[in-house]
């Protein structure tokens, strides 16, 4: 029943927004990383709610799986000395607030525009259309994407290599 849909959505929203805020404000860096993973999960849930299960699957695999791990590796290799909480934030925070607040207003306005629109979430799954599109119309970009990944991988290795070799 739809009430469950709406409730589920509300839950996911709280999870997403809350975890997002947590990422930015958290005390310890590992907390930020794990909260980020949680955000990803919630977004995957929203994908499911929309009926895009395949995308949700990809989200979990790639974001929660690979990217979170990568970030954790990054955290692991860059230990920082402990510091007071105030120093977690850049010196430009006040200027940033000045610019970001108007954007927030704009965001609110935009969101408001869509309040009366019909329900989201189309019929049927998204696997068949997605596969048809990717391997049909977008086969070439798909191949190019694989080359991009290869380049990124090589680039990352080259960047991190130590000179002593």
């Amino acid at each position: 029943m739809d009430i469950f849909g709406a409730a589920f959505f509300a839950l996911l929203t709280i999870g997403t927004i809350g975890a997002g805020v947590g990422v930015v404000l958290a005390n310890r860096i590992t907390t930020s990383a794990l909260l980020m993973a949680f955000t990803f999960l919630n977004v995957a849930g929203m994908f499911v709610l929309l009926g895009a299960e395949t995308v949700a699957m990809f989200q979990v695999l790639i974001y929660v799986g690979a990217i979170t791990v990568l970030i954790l590796y990054g955290v692991m290799f860059t230990p920082q000395s402990p510091r007071p909480y105030g120093l977690f934030f850049q010196t430009q925070k006040y200027w940033a607030a000045l610019f970001v607040v108007p954007i927030a207003i704009f965001v609110a306005v935009v969101a408001f525009e869509f309040r009366d629109s019909a329900a989201a979430g189309g019929s049927g799954g998204d696997l068949v259309p997605l596969a048809t599109s990717i391997f049909g119309d977008f086969a070439f970009p798909f191949e190019v994407a694989s080359v991009l990944l290869l380049a990124a991988m090589v680039g990352a290795i080259v960047l991190v290599k130590r000179d002593e070799e």
Binding site: D2, I3, G5, A6, F9, T13, M46, L49, L50, A111, F112, E113, F114, R115, D116, S117, A118, A119, A120, G121
Partner: peptide, 8 residues
Amino acid sequence: MAVPLGAF
């Protein structure tokens, strides 16, 4: 009720 697009 279904979730409106605007919410997403």
